[in-house]
Design a protein around this nucleic acid. Sequence first.
DNA 1: TTGTAGGCGTTATCAA
DNA 2: TTGATAACGCCTACAA
Lengths: 342, 342
Amino acid sequence: MANNRDITIYDIANELNLSSSTVSRALKNHRSISKKTIKRVNEMADKMGYTPNELASSLRNNKTKTIGVLISRLNRPFVTSLISGIEETAQKAGYNVIIAQSHDSYNDEVTLAQALYNSRVSGIICSLAMETTKTNHFDQFIKKDIPLVFVDRVPKDFDTYRVMIDNYSAGYKATNHLIEMGAKRIAHIGGLKFRNIYKERERGYRDALKKHNLPIDEDLIQHVKSMSYDEGEKATNKLLDMDNPPDGIFTSNDTTGVAAIQVAKQRGLIIPDELKIIGFNNDPLSQIIDPGLSTISHPAYEMGKTSSKKILKHLKKSDKKSITEITFLNTEIIVRGSTKTN
Amino acid sequence: MANNRDITIYDIANELNLSSSTVSRALKNHRSISKKTIKRVNEMADKMGYTPNELASSLRNNKTKTIGVLISRLNRPFVTSLISGIEETAQKAGYNVIIAQSHDSYNDEVTLAQALYNSRVSGIICSLAMETTKTNHFDQFIKKDIPLVFVDRVPKDFDTYRVMIDNYSAGYKATNHLIEMGAKRIAHIGGLKFRNIYKERERGYRDALKKHNLPIDEDLIQHVKSMSYDEGEKATNKLLDMDNPPDGIFTSNDTTGVAAIQVAKQRGLIIPDELKIIGFNNDPLSQIIDPGLSTISHPAYEMGKTSSKKILKHLKKSDKKSITEITFLNTEIIVRGSTKTN
DNA sequence: TTGTAGGCGTTATCAA
DNA sequence: TTGATAACGCCTACAA
């Protein structure tokens, strides 16, 4: 049942009294091969059940049809949509996608980057682990001119492709919206500050307050480690326990935003009258919760598509030189019941 | 900057005046090599920045360290958890995971199965596309003794590993719970009947009704194509528009369950007093919606882990023979506000 | 239009 | 304990 050897181009060649090179060329419709031979070869290949060995081909050509994707973890809607976009675009171009989860651990990220390198991926797309501050483990890709795209959680200084949103202006927009809806004392729940995206969103938040001459109260700014639901609950409780609690909260993701809504509801606060909340990402949760969570749409799927395209385009080019290219995708504000009554 | 050739074992061998075979063995701590040589080789490898070429190794050994995963689409919580489980288990064993999305299209599934085969995956885990009824495209894996695991959406007749839940008993449990909570006229929103999991859940539903001497009204059974939110809304509206509407609904996933809740709320029905709803999957949505959606927990992550383990175990075995092994994982009923008042 | 020959990097077999 | 050699399956420069 098992281990019957694979059919190779040699087997086809033997059967047709041709050379393996002719068969190889025929299978790729090489123009130097007669139509008749091409037809014969293809028919025989079908008949014999030939399947090309991509491995051998990759080794010989020194390139694989594989893109490596290194992300924190799969179970977040943003990541899922991102990968969907990556995978669909890659698939259309005949590329496979290998997925590796760092679980937000720097050590795992280093190991996995190496594993992806060893399996000779043609390109790599990475959204950094929460913990990661050094990025030496990616240098090898640049050295070998393997296109590297950082997406969303990108390092600050690394000359390569980066696909991201303008987190500063998104943070500004979100905060500004709360102000426009009448909030005067606005809190912020964000991620660790060395992760640039969170820092930028916070910067936007601060600038929006300044712009409207609202004071910045450091006690109203909560940094949480993993932006989980539990952390969101805790942070919200802390905020609402204050003597002078906020009347608006901008959370840097929807999970904590939803947590904030739940906590506020449990405490009997009326949303949005007494407390306005805006999140970030436009996760499915945000429209299911009652009231709906206003949020910033994060074009995850588009970011995935764009990342794949950068890789594919780079692989087509012949002039090899190091590249720095930052692509910003647009965000939109999505207004729901958590900030505005119908 | 680019294209500096990779360091190979030959380069190391040259540098140390050894043969490539010695280096190869040293790098794998082969017992026939002296400790001293092993040390020298490893140090030199580090120094020169050697990275093994898995591609060459795979070709030579005729096996890859890669598991292929073929699923419908990534953006469903069930699938995400499934893959998380697969990937983590695989990663620990030094395996990569290649992901391919069929988008529930039979044709794509056939193409992708072939692509995975061509890239010589060591094993394949598949959850069938909604459309798929024939499974010939998987025969090649069996022929080559490449372990194949079907998970969740499994074919009825295919002698291989299958990892699934007992959908019949889960459907029975869910329906039974509605009855126990007092529902007398229970509807069902399920998927296409040729997809076995939906058929089985429906069978459980029917038998639970029978068991309690409740009549089965075919009008109360809705089959929808993709179990999407929109379809859930439509189906629910249809049911509630009946002259004699149901007082309970069992939906075969949470997305349609949540849709049912929303529709019922919009219509001013009181849940669970006037209408009890139970879903399937225990998606994050189900606990966020208000009232919480009672549901059947689907051990997705566990199913992923189990699937990976089946593959890894099979690869270790030496006695190659075709295998039929069905693993059932447990489901649990999770009771929330949509069926029971606190 | 087709064939010959060598090599991609690794590893297993056999010999030393 | 180490080395020489061939092979995994494919592709391409060169030759015919």
